[in-house]
Structures are given as C-alpha cells and as structure tokens.
C-alpha cells in the first residue's frame, strides 16, 4: 500500500508541468523514505531527478518499494482537473496497475478521484557522483528564466563563463550577439532576490539553450535556482521545492569536435 497526501496540491501540478516536456515517461520510485524519479530525455542529453521526502507530505505511507511507470502527459491531464487549492492524495495498492489521485477542495465540499493507468518502463539509472563544483551560482529563478528565454531568441547555444567578475551568458545567431553578465549581489534584503556566486576556479562551458530554457519551467516551484558548473562536466540546475524536496536537472555540455 502506498499513500501520500499533500495539502498544497498545486505543488504536484507545477512539478509535472516542469517535467512533462522534457521527459515523456518515467518511474516514480516509492519507498518508506519518499518518492523519487530519475528520467532522461529521449536523446539522453539531459536528466531530471526528483526527490520528494516522506516527511514533506502531510501524510505518507509506503509498505513496500514500488516503481510506478508514469506517462507525464497523461498525469498532467489528470492533475489539470485538480483545483489549485485542492489537497491531493496519491494512492496505489501493492503491484497495482493504476495510481489513484484523489482531489479534495479546501472546504471538503468536492471530492473527486481519477485512476491513472501505470506503464511498465525499463529505465536506465545513472549514478550521479557527489562532487565539488568549480562554480556555484544561486540566483532568483525568475532571473534565470529571463536570461535563458531572452538568449533563446538570439541563438541556439550559450557559453556560460564564471570568473571573479561574475557569471556571463553569451550567445550569437543570425540576429547578432548577446552577452548578459550577473554580478554577486547580496544587497537585496530578501534572500530570494540575491545573487550569490561561489567561485573556486574560473570555468566556461557551452550548452544547448533549448534545454536550459526547458528547465526554467520549474520557476513557479522555487524563488531561487542554483547552477553548478565544473569544466567538462554536465551543468547541474537545482530548484528546492520548499520542505518537500527538490528537482534537479543535468545537461551534458557541447564539446569541441
């Protein structure tokens, strides 16, 4: 038996909206410690890793580990039927072929349930090493979203360079070129409006803007985003989802021919 209840159901809606274009399907791995998902896009260029801790839910129970194969487009269709203020409960029997989603309105006067058909998905699991990165940048998630959106209108790839001057995003295309530099800025009173650059050594890497732009669909989940960079390694883009957990994106760099 698996059961997870979250009062703030809109978080689940936002999570699935953030993932569904990047990965069409994946396994929700549930255990007594929470719900995780690891899924790569079809070209194996980027990876989404989602962790929702058991204690982040208002109620959580999982008697045995299960992998629930989810089609995110279908899950999104069902979650669109939930109100933003609804409490959402996920439920599945052991070895079930469906996941039940129950939506309760805030004043309990409307209760609905939907069964999502589960899939059998063979997924490749990658071991992501814990490591120190050359540069870690925390910035407002809306700022990150604006930068990658603006640059996507100019070019296809972005060179991200972190130096002691700041972090520079550069692109070029048919229109011309663009450079946006962010400096360390801890003056805003609100921590979520600050830009904090932790630089161990300068680093410069090139990435496909299409994916970085896609990661910014997670913006509604968190006020800040963290970018971590190390030479010749994938970029790591992380959103903390309150006390519930996090959603992490990894994107392989462009490499010289």
């Amino acid at each position: 038996m698996f059961e997870a209840r979250i009062t703030q159901g809109s978080v689940l809606k936002k999570l699935v909206e953030a993932l569904k274009e990047l990965v069409t399907e994946g396994n929700f791995d549930v255990s007594s410690t929470g719900l995780t998902l690891q899924a790569m896009d079809s070209s194996h260029v980027c990876l989404v890793s989602l962790t929702l801790r058991d204690d982040g839910f208002d109620h959580y129970r999982c008697d045995r580990n299960m992998a629930m194969g989810i089609h995110f487009g279908n899950l999104s269709k069902i979650l669109k039927c939930a109100g933003n203020e609804d409490t959402i409960t996920l439920k599945a029997e052991d070895n079930a072929d469906t996941l039940t989603l129950m939506f309760e309105s805030a004043n309990q006067d409307r209760i609905s349930d939907f069964d999502l058909k589960l899939m059998s998905i063979e997924s490749e699991h990658l071991g992501i090493p814990d490591q120190d990165y050359s540069a870690e940048i925390k910035m407002p998630s809306a700022e990150y979203q604006r930068i990658v959106r603006d640059l996507t209108s100019i070019g296809d790839t972005v060179l991200i360079s972190a130096t002691k001057e700041g972090i520079k995003f550069s692109t070029s295309g048919d229109v011309g070129t663009a450079n946006i530099t962010l400096r360390h800025n801890t003056t805003p009173e609100k921590p979520e409006e600050q830009t904090i650059i932790d630089l161990k050594e300068p680093v410069a890497l090139t990435f496909a803007l299409r994916y970085l732009n896609n990661f910014s669909k997670a913006t509604p989940l968190a006020p800040q985003v963290k970018l971590s960079l190390t030479k010749d390694l994938p970029i790591f883009v992380e959103y903390q989802v309150g006390d519930l957990g996090n959603v992490r994106f990894f994107l392989a760099p462009k490499i010289d021919d």
Binding site: S43, V45, C46, G127, A208, P234, A252, P253, K254
Partner: peptide, 13 residues
Amino acid sequence: MQQGTLTAFFPST
C-alpha cells in the same frame, strides 16, 4: 561543437 550525452559522464547503475 557536438552535443555530448549524459551517459558519457555518469555511469549506469
């Protein structure tokens, strides 16, 4: 430049 794949960086487990 060529697009790398993640499987070249992270081992399969």
